[in-house]
């Protein structure tokens, strides 16, 4: 088997996921951006030797985008499977990222797949696809972001086994940043210290603090030869905010931590 992607577990998430997959129970991953949800899904898929299909949901994504539609091709209408249909046919893990962003009819399509029926009715073609055992739906959701109108409906939420993700604790995050970016441990520790500080600004001017992903980027820039301060400036300041005052706070933070 090919090498597994690197994933550093932070709790019992692997065990829970494996069990859920075995029992064919759909999984909900909750957590802020860039904390390793996608990486985890890739890792699990690889561990369970199943293909994974990822769909990034946005507000215009409709059920038809997932199931498929008739296309005009060379003068003929041809049915084209959407990613969900393809996933059902192939018995893949289908990962719907930020699912609440999608239009509400998406949920309606998911419902029969996420209870014991495990079927995907295709109205347009009149088919009803039964999902093979290896098919698994995984959705992700960032509870911090949504407005009240974008919360996961109870009837949806309760169809999933949930796993809560958060940024890992200091030591683990340092390990991840060092490993992923190739920077040395001291630099990684500094980056994590700054990153964790920025998370204090959440809902005080920043939507989110720096994610693990962003810290990895900063580390990569350092590995690539950029001085630490500049690497931080480009990621932890520039990518977090455009607001002048916030920028000033973040710069002061860099100055305080880096001297």
């Amino acid at each position: 088997m090919s090498a597994l992607p690197y994933y550093r577990p932070t709790g019992n998430e692997i065990e829970v996921f494996e069990t859920a997959a075995r029992l064919k129970l759909p999984v909900l991953l909750k957590g802020p951006t860039g904390c390793g949800k996608s990486r985890f899904v890739r890792y699990m898929a690889s561990k369970l030797s199943r293909p994974v299909i990822t769909v990034a949901c946005q507000e215009d994504l409709a059920a038809a985008d997932l199931t498929g539609r008739f296309m005009l091709e060379g003068g003929e209408t041809v049915w084209r499977d959407g990613p969900l249909t393809r996933g059902v046919r192939e018995g893949a893990i289908v990962y719907l990222d930020e699912v609440v962003e999608a239009r509400s009819d998406v949920m309606t399509v998911l419902h029969p797949l996420t209870d014991d029926r495990r079927v995907l009715p295709l109205d347009r073609t009149g088919e009803e696809l039964a999902a093979p055992d290896s098919f698994l739906i995984v959705i992700s959701y960032n509870p911090g972001y949504q407005s009240v109108t974008r919360e996961l409906k109870e009837s949806t939420r309760q169809r999933f086994v949930s796993l809560s993700f958060d940024y890992p604790d200091e030591a683990v995050e340092t390990e991840i940043v060092a490993k992923e970016s190739g920077c040395d441990a001291a630099t990684a520790a500094r980056l994590v210290e700054i990153g964790r500080a920025t998370r204090k600004l959440k809902s005080h001017g920043l939507k989110e603090g720096a994610s693990t992903r962003l810290l990895v980027y900063a580390g990569q820039l350092v590995t690539g030869g950029l001085p630490l301060r500049q690497a931080c400036e480009a990621t932890l300041v520039g990518s977090l905010t455009d607001d002048q005052e916030m920028t000033r706070s973040l710069r002061e933070l860099l100055r305080s931590v880096l001297g």
Binding site: G205, M246, R248
Partner: peptide, 12 residues
């Protein structure tokens, strides 16, 4: 405002 943000970050 920037000061408050900074204090939050460095003091936790």
């Amino acid at each position: 405002r920037p000061l408050a943000g900074w204090v939050r970050m460095v003091s936790g």
